[in-house]
């Protein structure tokens, strides 16, 4: 996966910096590297839900570790987006149990409704649709994750339409996102 460099200066907000320091203090002395995953979640939140190389370098500086230590973690975990995504990332679980209950229909329906392919982003940069592996909601399928929450039992076009409409009209989308 190719990481993207933007050459834009990165700086966390005051509150994000304070949060990052607080998280590093949770671990035993000298073991603050443990905080890297929670801090990368904050970094994504600060950078429109994705990690540029610049953001990762900033995190390395903040944590006083080598940039490569950040890259190798960021590239391993599937929740870290290494390229820009839409304002709302619709992550549909498509693993076995969800597939049995209509996950493939949900992906097809979303993609045709929004006129994109799986993994793609709409032209207005509002939505990205992605098939992801098991989210632990097998009994409540079909479902998807958007930001912090799960949206479950999405088994009819009406429910999906209503949800998309609701998202389109939302202004303060950040309040549902990651708070470590």
């Amino acid at each position: 996966m190719l990481a993207v460099k933007t050459n834009k200066p990165v700086n966390f907000s005051e509150s994000a910096q304070a949060k990052a320091r607080e998280i590093m203090d949770r671990y035993p002395t000298g073991k603050h590297k443990s905080a890297i995953i929670p801090i990368l979640h904050i970094a994504q939140e600060e950078n429109e839900n994705w990690l540029s190389v610049d953001t990762m370098d900033y995190v390395a500086g903040l944590m006083k570790i080598k940039p490569v230590e950040v890259y190798e973690v960021a590239t391993f975990y599937s929740m870290f987006n290494l390229k820009p995504v839409g304002r709302f990332l619709l992550e549909v679980c498509h693993t076995g149990p969800c597939a049995v209950r209509g996950a493939e229909w949900l992906i097809d329906y979303l993609c045709s409704k929004l006129n994109i392919k799986p993994g793609g982003t709409t032209a207005d940069n509002m939505f990205t649709v992605k098939g992801v592996e098991c989210l632990g909601a097998c009994g409540y399928a079909p479902m998807m994750q958007i930001g912090k929450y799960y949206y479950e039992h999405l088994d009819t076009p009406e429910k999906v339409d209503a949800l998309i409409e609701q998202l389109r009209n939302r202004v303060d989308y950040k309040h549902e996102n990651w708070v470590v």
Partner: peptide, 10 residues
Amino acid sequence: IVVHCGAGAY
């Protein structure tokens, strides 16, 4: 007790 989060890895 410290609650620690992962980031998507079975």
